[in-house]
Amino acid sequence: MSNTEDKMKNAKDHLVGKTKEGYGKVTGDKQVETEGKAQDLKADVGDKFSEIKETVSEKVGDVIDAVQDKMGKDKQEKK
């Protein structure tokens, strides 16, 4: 799943979770309130996971670039 898709899904889960939580509080339905809290928490975890994936992807890209630069310099030195 792409980062944009992850963000959209997490935003939807935040919205639905908060809505369920609010509905549960207003109606006194503790089960719905708890489900809403859980769905919002799931979205929080998804947000953090997306951040981690993005950071790791950037770092891997940096390492690949550094290796390619090093290999290019080594080839030039051998000439």
Rank of each mutant, 00 (worst) to 15 (best):
Met1Lys: 08
Ser2Pro: 00
Thr4Met: 00
Lys7Asp: 02
Asn10Ile: 05
Ala11Pro: 01
Ala11Asn: 04
Ala11Val: 08
Asp13Thr: 07
His14Gln: 10
His14Leu: 12
Leu15Trp: 12
Val16Phe: 11
Val16Lys: 03
Val16Leu: 13
Lys18Glu: 14
Thr19Gln: 06
Lys20Val: 02
Gly22Ala: 12
Tyr23Thr: 06
Tyr23Leu: 13
Gly24Asn: 04
Gly24Trp: 02
Gly24Gln: 05
Gly28Cys: 05
Asp29His: 08
Val32Ile: 10
Val32Ser: 02
Val32Gln: 03
Thr34Tyr: 00
Thr34Ala: 10
Gly36Ala: 14
Lys37Trp: 05
Ala38Asn: 10
Ala38Tyr: 02
Gln39Ile: 11
Lys42Ile: 08
Ala43Phe: 12
Asp44Leu: 05
Asp44Tyr: 04
Gly46Met: 09
Lys48Ile: 04
Phe49Asn: 11
Phe49Thr: 13
Phe49Gly: 04
Ser50Glu: 03
Glu51Asp: 12
Glu51Thr: 15
Ile52Asn: 08
Ile52Thr: 12
Lys53Trp: 00
Lys53Met: 10
Glu54Cys: 06
Glu54Arg: 06
Ser57Phe: 01
Ser57Thr: 15
Lys59Gln: 11
Lys59Met: 07
Lys59His: 09
Asp62Pro: 10
Val63Glu: 12
Val63Arg: 03
Asp65Cys: 08
Asp65His: 08
Ala66Ile: 08
Val67Asp: 10
Gln68Pro: 03
Gln68Asp: 13
Asp69Glu: 06
Lys70Met: 10
Lys73Glu: 15
Asp74Gln: 05
Lys75Phe: 05
Lys75Arg: 05
Glu77Ile: 09
Lys79Met: 02
